[in-house]
Design a binder for these strands. Structure first.
Lengths: 199, 199, 199, 199
DNA sequence: CATGAATGAGAATTCATTCAT
DNA sequence: GATGAATGAATTCTCATTCAT
């Protein structure tokens, strides 16, 4: 391995260790010592890669969040555009949460412990939806909304999926998670489908 | 003041100080020292009233959350039962968040820092909605759902209002908060109204 | 011991330990850990008495410096006022340095590590001299100087005694220290006596 | 550039960077990292030129101190030997301090952070004065002193100029610095001139 | 020689909690 | 029951130095 490759590997170790520790114990208990230990590097090495603890925290959500968004979009593209695709997107999100147990904490504690990253993550997602909705409006697939309305709409959509994820997260076992997922998708379709159609 | 009254006054001081400090700085930075100082008692006194720091945290949400729920229901009761009332409830919640700036933190950080209280708070609210919806179904005011569906529905409703609150919380100024509130209520009505009616 | 007395005793322990450690190793190597250990208290206790490490450093010079100034003035008062007394004062200072080995570091490193305290210490001493010289001028015991001149004069006097102290501090052994002291006093008299007299 | 020239250039970079950083932040905060960065070399390169951090510190004072002594002597040679020349020397020193703001720290913190270099610097200066005074005595320009007396005399002279420099260093602005300089020279002449003449 | 990532000992500081008064 | 000094484990972060490339 070249020097550069090694550095990249160390950075990845730290990011992965960061994710693992935060997933397991939350940001609050994710000490630099634990993360460095798990990454297999000296404590000081941490600070060669991150300004401080907060900097790692702010790097976690982009690192994991991008992975999630890509996975979801990849699946979403298999569905026909429009309401149908949005429902697939919702389901894909819930599946991601089910399959990546720890992601829930990384994402939902970020508002508190990695506010910059959280804001950016939110903005990214909101912007993605803005584009989707504007296209849909342009093509007359949904009714018209002004920008303010679109923003409020999107936040409420995000709230639905966030709280569906919460419900799943706190479910007792795997089969309950799956049941909640299916039922949430159904309810989401109910809410979502009828409300946005042309009148 | 009798001994008992004095004790109750001290307890209240601590709870109020706890709310104030958490509202201002978040649970994470709400040290026992700060809370005791603000309450005007010695640090040691804190432990005569709470097992430990976590115990106070878990007491905060019931203390403030009840106040909120009462305020909201009081307003909700002025509206005719059914979809209309639920929309009023939603608006009342957003108004509460606007008027009680610090409450947002007490509530939304509780999932992390006061998980027991948060769970109970959620259960209380969910149960409230369960009753409301069951009555509405019994009276044929809304379509029928089974229990699983009701739970999922309610979580999504809570998600909407939580994220509308988030949007308001991060709004730049008061007038923007009010605009978001009004627009969110409108969107909520859109989602909510059409989806639940009898088909 | 009452609670208050105990607190005072702890504070004294810390101040004395601070002096001892700084005297032995210099401010630079005087860690809070070493000082607390020597004082026989927990590390955290240190911070019940001092804002931070710098605060202790700034407390050291007043603590020791006052002791020195009192000792010197007590001796100086035994001499007749005027040039004679000033020479006694100079000698008393050198004796203090000889007898209080560690004081040299506390005093001369303070310019770097406890700048506020050093500034105040200097001002105190300068003001003391200002008074002395103004009285002497008023009584026609020395020639006249304006304020600017007095300040410059005093700084040079302080430089003499500081560097005489330095010479003593680095002397190989006790007898050499004493020789340097006596000789410095003699030279000081030479410089000092002739220059200030009325012309 | 030959290999040797390049090495010399790197060494100079490090020495100049060392001076700059110490002048700006003091020895205490002059980390190897800052110095190497400013010199434009890798951290590891530092250790090809200096055993350790202390070694650089001990190199700084000779590097800058020599420059100062040469400058001063060059000016001093323009004055007639004797008391007159010594006063010019004193003034030249104060001017050097005024013109080389950062030098004050390099010089006066050296006693603590570069004790070997400081000792040598002092010895060099003391020896310079010893020669001067011995010549002056041989030529009957000043009264006679034995070696011990000469040493004490010289230390007190050095003290005067050091503290005059301190007074200047802490002066509020440039014009005050100049006033203090002029007044200090005057007072120095008073002390110095009358005391050393033949009696 | 130059590089710069890795090291790890050690520094300052915080704070929940205890307990003698 | 109230007090507040004492505790000490834990945390974040720094930096001189090393050494494989």
């Amino acid at each position: 391995m070249s020097r550069e490759e090694k550095a990249r590997a160390t950075l990845d170790s730290l990011l992965n260790a960061g994710c693992a520790v935060v997933a397991a114990e939350g940001y609050s208990d994710a000490s630099v010592a634990k993360i460095a230990d798990l990454a297999g590097v000296a404590h000081g090495t941490f600070y060669n890669y991150f300004e401080d603890r907060k900097a790692l925290f702010n790097a976690l959500l982009p690192y994991e969040g991008l992975r999630m968004r890509e996975k979801i979009e990849q699946i979403a593209r298999t569905a026909p555009p429009g309401v149908q695709r949005e429902i697939v997107r919702f389901e894909a999100f819930l599946n991601y949460v089910i399959e990546n147990e720890g992601f829930y904490r990384i994402l939902y504690e970020a508002e508190i412990f990695a506010p910059e990253a959280h804001r950016e993550h939110m903005d990214n997602i909101v912007n993605g939806y803005l584009g989707t909705f504007r296209r849909a409006m342009a093509e007359n697939r949904i009714r018209r909304f002004d920008d303010q309305q679109l923003h409020c709409l999107i936040y409420q959509i995000l709230g639905m999926r966030a709280y569906a994820a919460m419900q799943i997260h706190y479910a007792a076992d795997q089969s309950e998670k799956l049941r909640i997922r299916d039922c949430s998708v159904e309810m989401y379709g109910l809410f979502f489908g009828q409300s946005l159609l042309q009148t």
